[in-house]
């Protein structure tokens, strides 16, 4: 009715869904109580751990993070988690480096190569394996896979031992090394990375992929030029998700990694290591009050580390899959 030129626009009212009936108010109230509970829970976790950890942070100072001694019988007691912190990072990185190509291959196989039936079976299997508790993987890693992996480690030493430092090893016992822990952790996170990657592959435009193959670009070129660039963000996000899980992994590593308070930078088949999480479990039982405080401090460091990783991963996944946000 009004001509286009008219410019007087009344003030905009922002409309929102508001509960009006009493029952609706209760309903909305209960759900927001539940939602706010998650905020309270995270704050409680951070708050209480920090409160308990504070004495340790105070008495140990910055060397809590960097030092290499853990001695509860010394006076004053010394609690330093340098080797564990680095060990967590090393094992998680090793696990991820091993898991990533395996997971991408498997996801590619399921989505683009396997017949429908095989793909369905493999998908179910991968999802089921993602649900295997870590104590089961731990026992398997310790009793079944450990000897095999130790043999692989000895082969690495025999054939690649000429490379300085990395494949250093002494003695006949190849157990308890970051290499084995990394392998065991990779078995835990392969299913996680695979399902994220597979989901991203499955959401790709099939027509584009098929057209590229049909046009004679070939599988490999299509993978390199079409699939990987499109999916890379999501894959990185999935890998970080796996990294976060690997950092927090406790029981499986507890059984396969020697706990030594000496920083092992990169001697992957040397039986020296330890991670923050596995250290907490192994020391907690006999800890006195101040050692417990130090373990709480280790826990909070670990939590903050995984928080950072998970924030980074959700940021990257969100960027890679904008359709998932709303």
């Amino acid at each position: 009715m009004s001509p286009q030129g008219e410019t007087k626009i009344p003030a905009k009212r922002q409309l929102v869904t508001k509960p009006s009936r009493t029952a609706d108010k209760v309903f909305f109230g209960l759900t927001s109580v539940a939602a706010n509970f998650s905020i309270v829970l995270i704050l409680l976790i951070l708050g209480f751990l920090l409160y308990q950890a504070w004495p340790a942070f105070q008495s140990q100072g910055f060397s809590f993070f960097s030092g290499e001694t853990w001695d509860s019988s010394a006076t004053p007691q010394i609690f330093q988690i340098g080797p564990m912190l680095w060990g967590s990072v090393l094992v998680a990185l090793l696990g991820m480096v091993i898991a990533l190509p395996l997971a991408i291959s498997l996801a590619y196989f399921i989505e683009f190569m396997a017949a429908k039936k095989i793909a369905a079976v493999a998908t179910t299997l991968v999802d089921l394996l993602a649900a295997i508790p870590s104590i089961v993987i731990g026992l398997w890693g310790f009793a079944v896979f450990g000897p095999v992996a130790q043999h692989w480690a000895s082969l690495l030493h025999d054939y690649l031992g000429w490379i300085p430092y990395v494949f250093y090893h002494e003695g006949a016992n190849y157990g308890g090394s970051p290499f084995i822990a990394g392998l065991v952790v990779s078995v835990m996170i392969v299913p996680i990375i695979t399902s994220v990657t597979r989901e991203i592959f499955s959401q790709m435009d099939r027509d584009v992929v098929n057209a590229s193959i049909a046009l004679g670009a070939g599988r490999a070129a299509t993978f390199r030029k079409v699939i990987l660039p499109t999916a890379s963000g999501g894959i990185v996000g999935g890998a970080l998700l796996g990294l976060g899980r690997a950092l927090g992994e406790t029981i499986a590593i507890f059984f396969v990694l020697n706990l030594v308070f000496h920083i092992n930078f990169f001697q992957v088949i040397n039986g020296e290591g330890g991670t923050v999480a596995s250290m907490i479990v192994s020391k907690f039982g006999e800890a006195d009050a101040s050692e417990r405080s130090a373990l709480m401090a280790s826990g909070i460091v670990l939590f903050v580390l995984t928080l950072l990783i998970s924030a980074l991963s959700s940021y990257i996944v969100k960027k890679a899959q904008p359709w998932r946000t709303n």
Partner: peptide, 21 residues
């Protein structure tokens, strides 16, 4: 309309003379 997040509105809708907003 107000069920959509970010919905904005101005004006009046009169139902039997009474503004529903």
């Amino acid at each position: 309309h107000e069920l959509i997040p970010g919905a904005g509105f101005a004006g009046q809708i009169l139902l039997d003379g009474k503004d529903i907003y």
